[in-house]
């Protein structure tokens, strides 16, 4: 994409409803961000600058879940404005943590948290792909800095980035962690895309699959193992952390609703 005299590719960064942790991770790249900023032109980034050029853009990074009508409209508009659209972080790529709330239970919680008179703005927490075609998904809650750099460099070199061809287990072994499954602890590592470096498990926390399902994930085999030492509600609690709005979750756990607003 870049050669001698050609103008630098125009990058715009937008955020929908989310925690902005993935943008903070971008800032934490420090010198590396400046290197990237030398190869590209950041023409729109609300968090970091006043400059806010209109499109068209070469690359648009979107962080967050399109949860309000304005965000959904903006997403569709941005899709037309850019050659390459990249989802940044699990809120954008999977609906992530905001996706824990089902569309049907939102009404109950609006009333409980905001009162009867409140006019809500949020419709449903869904991934970007529920509305538009996305060229690449950089998963993670938050994103792994090395993965962001890899994807950006590959895009700048004109390549189409691909997800890692291995699961979290591979990196977890490299990190020297004892296997959670062998210790009879629930783990979604075997069915989750690598790239995170098994950072959660290394810290002592579980893997909830924020990097998304890997290609040809053997979900049923994993469930077979998990049900040897845990029950369905426990397993669901893990799957519902980041994967609740995936088709696989619906296949495994969707059941008739109960009335109290919780599903």
């Amino acid at each position: 994409m870049v050669s001698g005299v050609e103008p630098k590719p125009k990058l715009a960064i937008f955020d929908f409803t989310d925690c902005e942790g993935c943008e903070v991770a971008l800032v934490s790249l420090r010198e590396k961000l400046l290197d990237l900023a030398g190869e590209i032109e950041i023409v729109n980034w609300r968090l970091a600058q006043r400059r806010a050029d209109e499109g068209p853009y070469d690359v648009v990074l979107i962080e967050g879940t399109p949860i309000t009508q304005e965000e959904i409209d903006t997403l569709k508009f941005l899709r037309e404005q850019t050659k390459i659209l990249v989802g940044l972080g699990s809120c954008a790529t999977l609906a992530g943590i905001p996706g824990i709330i089902d569309k049907e239970s939102r009404g109950f919680w609006y009333k409980k948290i905001y009162g009867e008179k409140y006019k809500p703005r949020g419709i449903d927490a869904l991934p970007l792909t529920a509305y538009v075609k996305v060229n690449y998904l950089i998963h993670g809650c938050p994103v792994e800095k090395k993965e962001v750099v890899r994807v950006m460099e590959e895009l700048l070199a004109g390549k189409a980035p691909k997800p890692r061809g291995y699961s979290v287990c591979f990196e977890c072994k490299l990190a020297g962690n004892p296997c959670r499954l062998l210790a009879k602890k629930i783990c979604l590592g075997p069915i989750t895309q690598g790239g995170c470096g098994a950072i959660c498990i290394s810290g002592g926390s579980p893997c909830y699959g924020c990097f998304g399902l890997r290609d040809s994930a053997q979900i049923d085999n994993l469930l077979h193992t998990l049900y040897k030492f845990s029950d369905s509600p426990e397993v669901e609690q893990y799957f519902s952390m980041f994967l609740k709005k995936t088709p696989e979750y619906a296949r495994l756990f969707k059941r008739p609703r109960v009335k109290n607003g919780k599903t």
Partner: peptide, 10 residues
């Protein structure tokens, strides 16, 4: 204008 995530319900 940020969308509601409803953490207290989540």
């Amino acid at each position: 204008a940020e969308g509601e995530r409803l953490f207290e319900g989540m």
